[in-house]
Design a protein around this nucleic acid. Structure first.
Lengths: 232, 232
DNA sequence: GCCAAAGCAAGAGCAGTGCTCTCGTTTTAG
DNA sequence: CTAAAACGAGAGCACTGCTCTTGCTTTGGC
């Protein structure tokens, strides 16, 4: 927490939060495309130009929402992992718990999910501020696999020679403590997990998959197996 | 081909195509969010209201582009499959060929890819006209697996009891001739494949995966294995 | 406590958007 | 040949993101 120096700074914090809240409300209702700065300002009883004191542009507001969304889904994954750990769940169940938590968050916040894992809306390059929150879910999966390795519940999948250097680099950069053999596989599984969730959230499973929950749990279990986490 | 009854109908066909071409150009340049009906009309030397004779709304134009994009990537997948088949490639290589073709198409047309596999832009419900083109890639994967089964190059993965009915239904609906044991797995692999491609196209692999090509081919091969296609 | 400086809300205004409606003109079909 | 349908052009509405100017309020250094 930063110290609040005066009434003005306190007001700024509150108004910034109010803007984001209202924007999130409109986002959840109509989607990112229809999010309007003027509508947000109108709903908050202020004039649109005043809003630019807090967010220099519409894209900056969206970026703030993106960061919050990353933090929100990241927190969901982390608490699911922590809960599974205090229950003494085996690695496979911890993996499943995280996957299920991410899916549940996505289904509960489809538009925020679309904001972070759908097509990038503002431009093409993600602002620097997003990379740390963006990696929270990934880091949680790394933690699960790391614990599985420590508990000797991990078999190392074979890794082709061409990916050996890549796996070493990845491991050093964001998966320290993980056997390099699994790092590349884990990244792939993470992308595949998001693919599964995206298909469900974005309606690609309409008329295709009906038993969504069972289908997802089974697929997530397959991913656990693929990354080397042994059953039970 | 429908018969062209007169000059007016011929003109309508040409103008409709010109509108879509120009719209696709602007889409490839600036993305779906910045696609403007007025800009398209301006570039074509017509007034914006005239464009509404051809597409009743911006969303309808986008829907037309979505259908074309589905057809485009579907055709890419089908030709890749056909080429691999005439070369006598084994099932695993046919699977890889289709995956690689879809990825190549996505990297070449990122905004069109975002249109179909990113967040749904217009509303939430996909128009009925999109479901047939949308299934072309999936059908190609079904065909690959079906051929693998016919060539006895397919091992049936175990399927949990909860998904048995679901797998039977899926098979009857869009995967006739496929052993029900693989249908559900195939659908999951299809979603996971799109997850891999989306992460790359949407920049989620920035600072994470560097050897993209090798990483993708290895992951796609893993998916082939997962769906039951045996190596070589 | 005073006062310049900075932060702030409000309003007007600009360029752009999707979309509608009207009005002549042209092409089609009976 | 004529009524009907399709068409292009233009004006106009309501909305958007964003900028600039104008006063007012809070802040921080003296």
């Amino acid at each position: 927490m930063t110290t609040v120096r005066g009434a003005r700074e306190r007001a700024r914090i509150e108004i910034t939060a109010a803007i984001k809240d209202e924007a999130r409300r409109q986002l959840a209702e109509d989607g990112a495309a229809k999010l309007s700065l003027r509508a947000v300002a109108r709903e908050l009883g202020m004039v649109s130009s005043a809003l630019y004191r807090y967010f220099p542009s519409r894209d900056d507001l969206l970026t703030a929402l993106i960061i919050d969304a990353y933090d929100s889904v990241g927190a969901a994954a982390e608490t699911a992992h922590a809960d599974a750990r205090v229950l003494g769940a085996p690695p496979r169940d911890r993996w499943l718990a995280v996957c299920i938590a991410v899916r549940a968050w996505a289904l509960a916040h489809p538009h925020e999910y679309a904001l972070i894992y759908g097509s990038p809306v503002p431009g093409y390059t993600a602002p620097e501020d997003t990379v740390v929150p963006a990696s929270r879910v990934g880091n949680t999966l790394v933690a699960v696999v790391r614990e599985a390795h420590a508990a000797r519940r991990l078999v190392l999948p074979p890794l082709p020679a061409v990916l050996r250097r890549e796996a070493d680099r990845m491991t050093g950069e964001f998966a320290a403590g993980l056997p390099p053999e699994v790092t590349a596989t884990l990244v792939a599984c993470w992308a595949q997990l998001v693919g599964l969730i995206s298909f469900e959230v974005f309606g690609q499973f309409n008329r295709v998959v009906e038993a969504r929950e069972e289908f997802f749990v089974h697929s997530a279990a397959q991913l656990a197996h693929q990354v080397g986490i042994i059953a039970v």
